[in-house]
Computed example of a mutant assay.
Amino acid sequence: MRHCAAMLCALLLIASNNEALAGDGKLLGTAGLIQVEGSGGGGIVPWATLAGYDTQDQVSVNAVMTQVDLDDYRLNVMGVSASFYDRIEISAAHQRFDLKQLGGDIRQNIFGVKYRLYGDAVYSRLPQVSIGLQHKRLEDGAIAELLGADSSSNGTDYYIAATKIHLGAVAGFNAVWNVTARATKANQLGLLGFGGAENNDYEVMLEASAGILLSRSVAIGAEYRQKPDNLGLGEDDWVDYFVSYIPNKHVALTLAWAELGSMAGAQDQNGLYLSINGQLW
């Protein structure tokens, strides 16, 4: 938690020294949300879009609080991010994974960087394309080590994402899609360590999102995230179905139904996803 607080202070200091702060440049809703690892995107998938509404001469600073309440577990996330001049995003997130049945928790810190390579999600003919990484550090790797993870301390994911928003494409409503390819060794986001007896090499996992903006403020959609099964515990792919309310550029509320399948041997882990995103500047 203190790592995120330190990052927030640094981002606020950077923002306070910039005259041009985000707010007016991009269309409402086109910045997306902040996902469970702290990167700009959907709920469980990082997108090519950056976390804020900044244009090429602006800076934005954002914060997120998310909870995913499952049958046997609960994931709490606090994060901060900043995007600079519609080109680069940095982020930090703290995850606490509560073991509701067994007691105790697993904590992880994630530090991310994303760089926009090409395009604009709305205005360019081809999709916006970005590359990024998420470096993950477990605070206590005892459970990961017990389950046979090759690394119970840290690991890094690398991804490339493409995002496109089509104005008026579906019965006059705006539509958005995203496809992400992630190279990863992470078990359950890294909460159960990295690599394992079944596989210890990077694998490329597919992630995707699709949604429709029913109005300027309401979006609905679904996401899919493929997962590796390095520990041989039957780690399932993730799916969620979401509705987001974005009344203005300062706040966004998202409610989703998450189907996360088997987690550490516990089957059919389904539950509610609730996230509050705020643009500070």
Rank of each mutant, 00 (worst) to 15 (best):
V218G: 06
S39V: 12
S81I: 08
Y158E: 05
N76T: 14
N178P: 02
T49K: 06
F194L: 10
I34V: 15
Y85W: 04
H135F: 05
D240H: 03
P228A: 10
W257P: 01
A175K: 05
I110K: 04
W177F: 10
H166G: 07
D105C: 04
A183S: 13
A161F: 02
N154Y: 04
H250Q: 15
A121N: 14
K136G: 05
H250W: 06
A183T: 07
G261T: 08
Q269D: 06
K249E: 15
C9F: 00
L99C: 03
A219T: 07
G193A: 07
R87K: 13
A92R: 10
L75H: 04
G172P: 02
T156R: 07
T184R: 04
A169K: 10
Y159S: 13
S244K: 05
Y241M: 13
D229H: 11
Q35Y: 09
T30F: 00
N199A: 13
A144K: 07
F97S: 09
S152D: 15
N230Q: 05
G52D: 07
W281N: 10
Y224M: 09
D240C: 07
G211K: 09
R87T: 13
F84H: 09
L11T: 05
N277W: 00
V113P: 00
M7E: 04
D54C: 10
